[in-house]
Design a protein around this nucleic acid. Structure first.
Length: 587
RNA sequence: GCGCCUGUAGCUCAACUGGACAGAGCAUCAGCCUUCGAAGCUGAGGGUUGUGGGUUCGAACCCCGCCAGGCGCGCCA
């Protein structure tokens, strides 16, 4: 629309990329002899709005190579440089910063583009590319607890972020449905199971008998041996044990699904460790034939101590396989079946060495060719102020309990602010708000930070929180609705965006930067970059809302501002959806 | 012992990966609802970025040494 009038068609190119391109050409043109200058021109968002909208710092970096003062370089770059329709002002400041101020009309165009573009302006750099994301991965026969929440929520956000960029995403829940614990559980089941409790809360009851059986195995040799025997029977296909095992999985999946539903999360597939069992022996063979694996103390190992990666066991001395082998088989299977460009794992920080080891083995054997990117997104452990969570101390918070508490706190606030709301609606709303608080608390910070869990922080309903963003969204929707009531014939979308007030301009610029935030969040595997952006946008919107009248403004200005509100709603709504946070119309 | 990670306001976190006076929320204090939703807004106080060196025009970020904490180092995953 406006862009046609201005004659500048920039499509879905990010503003920073567009400016980098323009400035990069200037550097190459002004200093044709310098290979360093050919690489220069990178433009980033301005640190401080006083200095303009964007900035380029490369003049300073080039000083040595060009044997010129940074300011002299910057001056040459901007002298005579004109980017009509895009840049209003270029200036050199401080030691040699090049500050860029955009044309208002360009900002307005870019903001408006978000609403008209099918992908809200998000560059489709993932089209035709496939990525497998492996996250959540709880263990069968154990209830999901607070230790699972980060992988689940961060993984789900990375999932949606990649889809937004056009990637084809295969979300795979690699559940722990195989391994030594099943011998212990089977014994526990045979001796301690309470069928009534099992029907009521399967995972909890299975965990209870597991803990009992595990405790007994520790100081009862005979019991331990029986557990081993049950496991061997299971692995050999004993009908009775197989039936129990299948039932454990079935019951666990029902509970997992219930929680995933509460969290609004869906996987494309749930292939547990057992799915790969038949391939394990072949993997070890392959490693041995490649000369990578060798026998040591009765086990088969891959020794990578020369690369400082220690030793990975791929077959235990009892002949059984372990998780390294399963992970290798899983990559092998995924590469063959899906040919992904990338496989992303979301697990806690304790597994860093394991992933380095098995990624290295994947490369050496060609199980994953160089064309497949293997990424380990690790996050810091969650702990309590007084120390770590541990089953032994009994201080583990179950995921259900956390979500229940979140919802009940939200419900209390709703009853206060909207007492007239019917109970059922209040509860639905409380679920949306409570869950968003839990999700946002996690997504708003860098995955790598160690989280010290407090109820206050995890369930915050004000300040930098999920509900703050939901509130901002609902308030905007209300503005739009009121406009429709009062001006039924009005059509804000057909009116030009007027950015006369500083805050209108700031807001429009922030809207226009949404696609960049999405891309950065996805490619750096840090959903917090998007969360930060959305919070910043909402704060700017709140100031805008507070400072300027919309519906009472004069005609024209009114439409422009209402239209801006609509753009904020579009961006907020899309952004929150990417984080897995719902956007109720009224809260 | 070796290795990986972390240390920023009283508390919880940012700082767009080396840029300009280090920013938010919570908590504290002072203001703003008979005008579009106060789960909101405006403002105040609060910092030698654990510490000592180094590299750089420029360091919270990179390098080295200490200090403190978390995690991992062969048959759990």
């Amino acid at each position: 629309m406006n862009s046609k009038k201005e004659g500048v068609q920039t499509g879905a190119t990010l503003i920073e990329d567009l400016l980098t391109d323009l400035l990069g050409k200037r550097f190459a043109q002004v200093f044709p002899e310098s290979p360093e200058a050919a690489q220069a021109g990178r433009v980033i968002a301005s640190a401080n709005p006083e200095f303009g909208d964007f900035q380029c710092n490369d003049a300073m970096a080039l000083a040595k190579a060009l044997r010129l003062s940074p300011r002299a370089i910057a001056d040459k770059i901007i002298a005579g440089a004109e980017f009509p329709g895009i840049v209003r002002k270029l200036e050199v400041a401080g030691p040699g910063f090049i500050n860029i101020t955009l044309e208002d009309a360009f900002i307005a165009d870019r903001a408006a583009f978000i609403a008209t573009d099918a992908h809200t302006g998000i560059p489709q750099c993932g089209v035709g590319r496939k990525v497998v994301i492996d996250y959540s991965s709880p263990n069968v026969a154990k209830p999901m607890h607070i230790g699972h929440i980060r992988s689940t929520i961060i993984g789900a956000a990375l999932d949606k972020l990649h889809r937004a960029l056009g990637y084809e995403v295969l979300a795979d829940n690699h559940i722990g449905d195989w391994g030594t614990q099943f011998g212990i559980i089977i014994m526990g089941y045979r001796h301690f199971i309470d069928q009534a409790k099992l029907a009521e809360a399967p995972a909890s009851e299975l965990e209870r008998v597991y803990v009992l059986s595990y405790g007994k195995a520790k100081d009862d040799e005979a019991w331990m041996n029986q557990c081993r025997a049950e496991l061997v029977k299971l692995q050999q296909g004993d009908e009775e044990n197989l039936k129990l095992w299948t039932e454990f999985i079935r019951l666990s999946l029902i509970e997992f699904d219930r929680i995933y539903k509460r969290l609004g999360i869906r996987f494309n597939m749930t292939r547990g460790e057992s799915f790969y069992q038949d391939a394990l022996a072949g993997i070890v063979d392959r490693l041995e034939k490649a000369g990578l694996a060798k026998e040591s103390e009765g086990a088969t190992i891959v020794d990578m101590s020369e690369e400082n990666l220690g030793v990975a066991i791929v077959r235990k001395s009892d002949g059984g396989f372990n998780y390294a082998t399963t992970d290798l088989a899983t990559v092998d299977s995924r590469v063959r079946e899906f040919s992904p460009e990338k496989i992303i794992y979301v697990t806690d920080e304790r597994q860093q060495l394991h992933f380095k080891q098995f990624f290295a083995i994947c490369r050496k054997t060609g199980i994953a060719p160089e064309s497949v990117d293997l990424v380990h997104v690790w996050f810091g452990l969650m702990r309590l102020p007084e120390g770590t969570f541990s089953t032994r101390q009994g201080n583990v918070i179950k995921l259900d309990a956390l979500l229940d508490e979140a919802e009940s706190r939200a419900l209390a606030v709703i009853k206060e602010s909207r007492p007239e709301l019917p109970e059922a609606e209040a509860k639905t709303l409380a679920a949306q708000i409570g869950i968003s608080a839990v999700k946002y608390a996690d997504l708003s910070q860098d995955p790598r930070t160690l989280i010290t869990f407090t109820w206050e922080k995890a369930l915050a309903l004000d300040g930098n929180s999920g509900p703050y963003l939901q509130y901002a969204y609902a308030r905007i929707r209300s503005v739009r609705n009121k406009y429709k009531e009062q001006f039924p014939d009005g059509d804000p979308e057909s009116q030009p965006l007027l950015l006369n007030d500083a805050i209108e301009r700031t807001l429009a610029l922030k809207i226009a930067m949404f696609p960049g935030a999405v891309k950065k969040a996805a490619l750096s595997y840090r959903p917090c970059m998007l969360a930060d952006y959305l919070y910043d946008l909402s704060q700017t919107y709140s100031s805008f809302y507070q400072r300027l009248p919309f519906l009472k403004a004069e005609s024209g200005v009114r439409e422009s501002r209402v239209r801006l509100c609509g753009l904020v709603a579009t961006v907020l709504g899309n952004g929150l959806d990417l984080l897995g946070i719902s956007t109720p119309e009224r809260i």
